[in-house]
Amino acid sequence: MSTLKTTPFFPHRHLLGIEGLSPQDIAALLDFAEEEIDVSRQVEKKKSVLRGRTQINLFFEASTRTQSSFELAGKRLGADVMNMSVASSSVKKGETLVDTAMTLNAMNPDILVMRHHSAGAAALLAQQVDCSVINAGDGAHEHPTQALLDALTIRRHKGKLARLTVAICGDVLHSRVARSNILLLNAMDARVRVVAPSTLLPAGIERLGVEVYRDMKKGLKDADVVMMLRLQRERMAGAFVPSVREYFRYHGLDAEKLACAKPDALVMHPGPMNRGVEIDPAIADGPNSVIREQVEMGVAVRMAVLEALSQHLPNRGGRS
């Protein structure tokens, strides 16, 4: 990534993915996020580290959760936050991503947060602009802040990440959440399993350092963490799995399958959930679930990332 003039605790200009982060980088961000939690729990939810900075949230895919999380994170740090959604943007009129990037760059933003439906879009943007870029999800490639918030949630409950058994279950094939989590958890020395029907597993997944299971009960055996993934509606009816009822029967997280995991296993989901598809409502709201806590950790992690990158601001003159 970037060459640096100073040596801040986070030596990167952009956050494009978990790939490229060292275990030290990750641990530092998580430590820092712990402090940010307190900010959000105060009555006065405000810091001023980003005062005078401009943050643009550029979302080519609709996302209530991630976009509002980034918006709140920026505002709580004092930044001026602007949301650009694709519906009203010139992209709809045929503008290329690079032209959009150049246009935005001319407005002198300090941080660009982008979600895009194509893998590699965030990296392309980072090559074109002078500011910091945060990848808020690019296709089926990476979603680094999701992996960080998941890690923070786990660490706060289990006190560690190393040597925990984490089962990532469901539509791994299309999931950027799964990829970022696999990278992060492996970097932090956790044991990662993926559990899915073969049709929802990417080719060569075992080469990414995971144990592969097709059977939920085997895959969840003695797991410390059960991470469910969302199954997109258009993939439910015969293309990748035959039907919702069959998917729920064999791959939906219910009490019977969860019983195979450790009694204190955490149940996680990046949201939004399809209740009755990948997860039984009773489990989603049950004692093992930390799903709502993940949302809170999301704001904290994004604040930590914004603040960490702000050490490099202004970024004028460097494009690396």
């Binding site: 015969g238 035959p242 069959e246 064999y250």
Partner: peptide, 15 residues
């Protein structure tokens, strides 16, 4: 093999 033998969507092999 496919719903309605229409060749478009697989059936519920498990069930």
């Amino acid at each position: 093999l496919t719903k309605g033998q229409a060749g478009k969507e697989m059936t519920e092999f498990g069930l």
